[in-house]
């Protein structure tokens, strides 16, 4: 591939929606390149177009202006090598954990092979849900449900993982734990991750690089590499450089919110 090394490229991307009363510009002039296996967090106030950015990458919509490409090819439709994790787990309430994880196969191809089952089993173990294969989502805690959501996204072994505030519905402790779990998964099986959040510590702890978006219409107002090396743990946020970094991110966000 000509542009090997680059996973996602946004070039002058703008998105305008037609609404009942007129039009609404959600994104404006976003130009960013994300390298393969890079973990990029996107921070920004609500409604600034973060989810829209993710949908554009997933090929669920087309940009009004500019272009989005994945592995050097313009995104015209959803791709097989992109997995999505939503804010809410949105599992199938009638299907057990295993059936939820193999759902992409059943839904895409209409059948589930024994190999699919084995693959699902392996992923279920990786995300720490061994023993819960036959449980229904309603029998699981919020954190476990989101693990199933992640397992489902990993099932087709995507090169790119898009995560839209995946831990924001969880309590603080579970949220931290899930963050470290995600890092562990990512290190074991490197992927390009586009991780949307509105938590500064979460972004700083998980990502290689943090993009800060402005209030709507969302523009990239900062693109800052995280100053701490990996592996990271609970103490990583305590270092002076990380404190400064987090404070800087906060000032960028607050300035925008006051404006």
């Amino acid at each position: 591939m000509a542009l090997a090394g680059n996973a996602i490229n946004f070039s002058g991307v703008g998105q305008t929606f037609l609404t009942g009363t007129g039009s609404l510009t959600a994104l404006d002039g976003v130009s960013v390149t994300i390298a393969q296996h890079e973990f990029v967090a996107v921070l920004g106030p609500s409604g600034c177009g973060k989810s829209t950015l993710l949908r554009l990458t997933a090929g669920l919509m087309k940009p009004s202006t500019g272009s989005v490409s994945v592995f050097g090819l313009p995104v015209t439709q959803p791709r097989d090598d992109v997995g999505i994790v939503f804010q809410k787990p949105t599992l199938l309430p009638w299907a057990n954990v295993e059936d939820n994880v193999v759902f992409p196969a059943r839904h895409k191809l209409g059948r589930v092979t024994p190999e699919d089952r084995a693959q699902a089993q392996a992923i279920i173990e990786t995300v720490g849900l061994a023993g819960f294969e036959k449980r229904l989502p309603s029998e699981l805690s919020g954190g476990m449900q989101q693990r199933v959501g992640i397992a489902r996204a990993l099932f087709l072994n995507p090169d790119i993982l898009l995560m839209d505030e995946p831990f924001s519905a969880l309590d603080a402790l579970t949220r931290d734990m899930m963050g470290f779990e995600l890092l562990r998964l990512w290190q074991a099986s490197p992927k390009t991750v586009l991780f949307i959040t509105h938590s500064i510590p979460e972004a700083a702890l998980l990502a290689d690089r943090v993009l800060v978006l402005s209030e709507r219409p969302g523009r990239v107002i900062a693109d800052l590499p995280v100053p701490t090396s990996r592996p990271r743990d609970e103490t990583s946020l305590g270092s002076p450089e990380m404190q400064d970094y987090a404070a800087h991110l906060r000032s960028l966000l607050i300035r925008k919110e006051a404006a």
Binding site: R55, A58, L60, P78, V82, I84, T90, L92, W94, H107
Partner: peptide, 28 residues
């Protein structure tokens, strides 16, 4: 939930399967 419809679209599944495997069970 709209997320499941997006999941279906992101998998490029046949439209009929979106009905039978997602919408209808949800409507039960």
């Amino acid at each position: 939930p709209p997320e499941l419809i997006e999941l279906s679209r992101s998998l490029r599944a046949p439209s009929l399967r979106e009905i039978t495997q997602i919408r209808l069970p949800y409507a039960t």
